Amino acid sequence: MSADAIRRFYSAFARLDGAAMQAAYAPDASFEDEVFTLQGRPQIGGMWRMLCDATKAKGRDVWRLEASAVTDRSAHWEAHYRFSATGRLVHNIIEAEFELGRDGLIRRHRDRFNFWRWSRQALGTPGVLLGWTPMLRNGVRAQAAKNLEAFLAKHPN
C-alpha cells in the first residue's frame, strides 16, 4: 500500500477530474463524511463527479485544494471553493482516513470536518443559527442525497 495512490487521488481532485477520482475506488468501496454515507464506486464516484462539475460551473475562479501529511492511511486537506447552492465562499478543513486494498484502490474513505464551521460559511445566517443542530445537518444530508440521485440519473458512470 502506498501513499502515492492517495497523492494521485488529491492531484485528480485539484484538477477537478471526477472520473479519475472515481477510478481510485474499489468497486465495493465505502465513503462517509458529515454529509454523505455512500457505498460502491458508482455512488462515491458520482458524488465526486457532481462536486467537481458544480465547481467547474460555478466556482473554478476560486477553487484551490491543498493536501498535506499524506500517508497510505490518512491525509489532511483543505478546500477553498464557492458553494454552488449559495455562491458563498468556503474554506473547509478535512482530516481523511483511508483503507487501501492490495491493488492500491481505496476500499474505505472517511472524511471528518467541523460541520458547524462549514455551515456558517456555506449557508450564512441559517448556518450560524442552526448549523450545530441535527435538524440542519439532516436537511443538508437529505438535499445532498436528492442532488446526487438526480445527478446519477442524468450522468450514470
Rank of each mutant, 00 (worst) to 15 (best):
A29S: 11
T37K: 13
H76T: 14
A67R: 08
L38Q: 05
R112K: 13
S74G: 12
V62Y: 06
T125V: 11
F31L: 12
G18M: 01
L136I: 02
R137N: 08
L129W: 09
E66P: 00
M135E: 07
D17R: 05
F9E: 03
R73I: 10
F115G: 10
R107G: 11
K56C: 11
V90I: 00
F83P: 09
G127M: 06
D72I: 06
C52L: 05
A26I: 08
T55D: 09
R141V: 13
T37W: 03
G127I: 07
L51Y: 09
L129H: 00
K56Y: 04
M47I: 04
S11Y: 06
A75P: 11
A14K: 01
S119R: 03
K58Q: 15
W77T: 03
A23G: 14
A69K: 12
R112L: 11
K56R: 15
R110C: 11
Q22G: 11
L89A: 12
F83A: 05
Q22V: 04
Q43N: 14
A26C: 01
L130C: 06
A142F: 10
R110G: 09
E66A: 10
L16C: 04
R117F: 12
V128F: 13
G101Q: 00
A54G: 10
R7K: 15
A67G: 05
P42G: 10
N92T: 11
G46L: 00
R102E: 14
A29I: 08
G139T: 06
F31T: 01
K56I: 10
N92V: 14
R120H: 02
Q39S: 14
A142L: 13
Q143W: 05
A85H: 08
Q39P: 03
T125K: 01
A54M: 13
D53F: 05
R64Q: 14
Y10A: 02
R120T: 11
